[in-house]
Amino acid sequence: MERKNAITFEGNPLTLIGNEVNIGDIAPNFTVTKMDLTPLSLTDLKGKNIVISAVPSVDTPVCELQTIKFNHQISAFSDVVLLTISMDLPFALSRFCGAKGIDNAVTVSDYKDREFAKN
């Protein structure tokens, strides 16, 4: 599907790949890597309510804040899985989650196949 809005970063146009996902669309499947290096596919969470929080890297201030805040807020919802996806290596995610007390989110990496980014 053609994108409706021009995407820019600091005024420079960006080219995005993949199909635009709109409200009401079924999310395309993807596989990411958990902190223990095992794969996790979106289909593994079928039937669950899922919030996907995508961040480039937890080692940037805004992404760190988003990850901490969402982790805290999701604890109020027992029927929702928070899936935090970044391009960080699983080892870095493990370090970050341990240091910041991230225990309510399923934190995964898209570094290997970049399926989340593409799909």
Rank of each mutant, 00 (worst) to 15 (best):
N49S: 15
E115Y: 01
T38I: 02
P13N: 02
N19Q: 13
D25N: 05
M35H: 00
M35E: 11
V62M: 10
L65F: 03
S57Q: 03
A54K: 07
K48M: 12
K34M: 13
G18S: 08
M35S: 01
T31P: 04
I17A: 08
A54L: 07
K69N: 15
D110F: 09
S78F: 08
V80D: 09
N22L: 15
N71M: 11
G101E: 05
N19M: 03
M35C: 06
R114Q: 04
I7N: 00
G47I: 10
A27K: 01
V108Q: 13
G98N: 15
K112Y: 02
S109L: 03
T107E: 09
Y111M: 13
V21A: 14
I74S: 11
G98C: 10
E20H: 01
A76Q: 14
P13M: 10
N119E: 05
I74Q: 05
I52A: 13
S109Y: 04
F96V: 03
K100M: 13
I23A: 11
I52T: 08
A76L: 14
L83K: 03
L42H: 01
T43I: 10
K118L: 07
K34G: 10
K46M: 09
K100R: 15
S53Y: 05
V21I: 15
V106K: 11
G98V: 07
D88F: 01
D113S: 06
V62I: 05
I23Y: 06
D88H: 02
G24C: 04
Q73S: 13
T8D: 03
M1D: 03
S41L: 02
T31I: 11
T8I: 06
C97D: 04
